[in-house]
Lab assay of single mutants.
Amino acid sequence: MKVMIRKTATGHSAYVAKKDLEELIVEMENPALWGGKVTLANGWQLELPAMAADTPLPITVEARKL
């Protein structure tokens, strides 16, 4: 699914347009965010693609819901 990742004042957030859902990312498998699992505030887990740590945000990526 397409997910937009952006930086907020409190960390990172994910927006899933198909579900009209925006949630804070509360847990990251990798400190650089990319190439691992993230957990959203509502409990969803997404697998993000591997990208460079300095990838500019906001960005829309293809993520997989676990």
Rank of each mutant, 00 (worst) to 15 (best):
L46V: 05
G35T: 03
M28Y: 12
K2Y: 13
L57H: 02
V3F: 03
A9V: 10
G36V: 06
V16I: 15
L24V: 13
V16N: 07
P56S: 09
E29R: 04
D54R: 05
P58T: 05
M51I: 08
N42H: 02
V3K: 01
A52P: 15
T39S: 07
G35W: 04
K18A: 15
T60D: 06
M1K: 00
L21C: 14
T10C: 14
S13Q: 09
A17I: 15
E29K: 04
W44D: 05
E27W: 15
G43L: 03
E23Q: 12
G35S: 04
A52R: 10
A50P: 13
G35F: 05
D54G: 10
H12P: 07
K19I: 15
L21I: 14
G43P: 00
L24A: 14
V61K: 01
A17P: 14
T60R: 04
L21E: 07
Q45F: 08
E62Y: 15
Y15H: 08
A41P: 02
L48R: 01
M1D: 05
P56E: 12
A32F: 14
E27M: 10
I5V: 08
K7T: 06
L24R: 13
V61R: 01
Y15I: 10
P56Q: 11
A14I: 15
P58E: 02
A50T: 10
W34S: 01
I59F: 09
D54M: 07
A53H: 12
L40W: 03
G36F: 05
I5K: 00
A50F: 13
G36T: 04
I25F: 03
H12M: 11
T39H: 05
T10G: 12
T8C: 09
L48K: 00
T39A: 04
T60H: 06
L33E: 02
L21W: 13
I59G: 00
K2S: 12
H12W: 15
L48F: 03
K18D: 15
E23K: 05
E47F: 13
I25R: 01
D20M: 11
W34M: 02
V26K: 03
D20K: 11
T60W: 15
A9T: 11
L40D: 02
L40K: 01
T55V: 08
H12V: 11
N42I: 06
G11Y: 05
A32N: 14
R6V: 09
E47T: 10
P56N: 08
E62K: 10
I25H: 01
D20C: 14
L24Y: 09
W34D: 01
L40M: 05
K19V: 15
M1H: 06
R6P: 00
V3E: 01
V16R: 00
G35P: 04
M4C: 11
D54H: 08
A9D: 12
E62L: 14
L48Q: 00
T39N: 04
A41K: 08
N42W: 06
L48A: 00
L40T: 01
G35Q: 05
V16A: 05
I25E: 00
E23L: 15
I59T: 07
E47G: 06
L66T: 10
I5N: 03
A17G: 10
T8Q: 07
K37A: 08
G43R: 03
A9W: 07
P56D: 08
P49E: 05
M28R: 10
P56F: 07
L66N: 05
E27H: 13
A53G: 09
K37P: 04
V61G: 03
A41R: 07
A63W: 04
K7N: 06
K19E: 15
K19L: 15
N42F: 03
W34K: 00
K65R: 14
K65C: 15
L66V: 14
V38I: 14
T10S: 13
T10V: 12
K2M: 15
A63L: 08
L57K: 01
P49K: 01
V26Q: 03
P56I: 11
D54K: 07
E27A: 13
E62S: 12
V16G: 01
M1E: 07
A52Q: 09
V38T: 00
L24C: 11
A41G: 09
E47Y: 13
A41H: 06
K19Q: 15
P58N: 02
R6K: 14
Y15S: 08
G35V: 03
G35I: 04
P31S: 09
V16E: 02
M51D: 01
M1F: 14
G43W: 03
K18H: 15
A17K: 10
V26W: 04
I5L: 05
N30D: 07
T10F: 14
G43V: 03
V16W: 15
A52F: 07
D20N: 13
A50Q: 12
D20F: 11
M28T: 11
K37C: 09
M28E: 03
V3P: 00
K2I: 14
E29A: 08
T10H: 13
N42A: 00
I25N: 01
A53I: 11
L57P: 01
E22M: 09
I59R: 06
R64K: 13
P56K: 12
L21R: 11
P31N: 10
A41V: 03
L48D: 02
V3Y: 00
E47A: 11
T10N: 14
G36N: 03
V16D: 09
K19H: 15
K65E: 10
M51S: 04
G35K: 03
D54V: 05
K19T: 14
V3W: 01
K18W: 14
D54N: 11
A63Q: 02
L33Q: 02
M4V: 13
A41E: 08
M1L: 13
Q45D: 06
M51R: 05
A53F: 10
L33Y: 02
K7D: 03
L40P: 01
P31H: 09
E47P: 00
A32Q: 14
A53N: 10
R6W: 09
L40Y: 01
A53R: 10
W44T: 04
L57A: 02
A52V: 07
P31E: 13
T10D: 12
K37D: 03
K18V: 15
L21K: 11
L40N: 01
W34F: 10
G11D: 01
N30Y: 12
I5M: 01
E22P: 04
E27K: 11
M51A: 04
N30L: 09
V26H: 05
G35A: 05
A50Y: 14
I5P: 01
T10E: 13
T8F: 06
M4P: 00
I59A: 12
G11E: 02
K2D: 09
G43H: 03
R6M: 11
V16Q: 02
P58S: 02
A14E: 00
L24K: 12
I59E: 01
A14N: 02
T60I: 12
L21Q: 10
W44F: 06
I59H: 08
A17Q: 13
K7H: 07
W34L: 04
V38Y: 04
K18G: 15
T39M: 09
E29W: 06
L24N: 12
P58D: 02
A52N: 09
K65L: 15
A17C: 15
K19C: 15
G36Y: 06
R64Q: 11
A14P: 00
V3I: 11
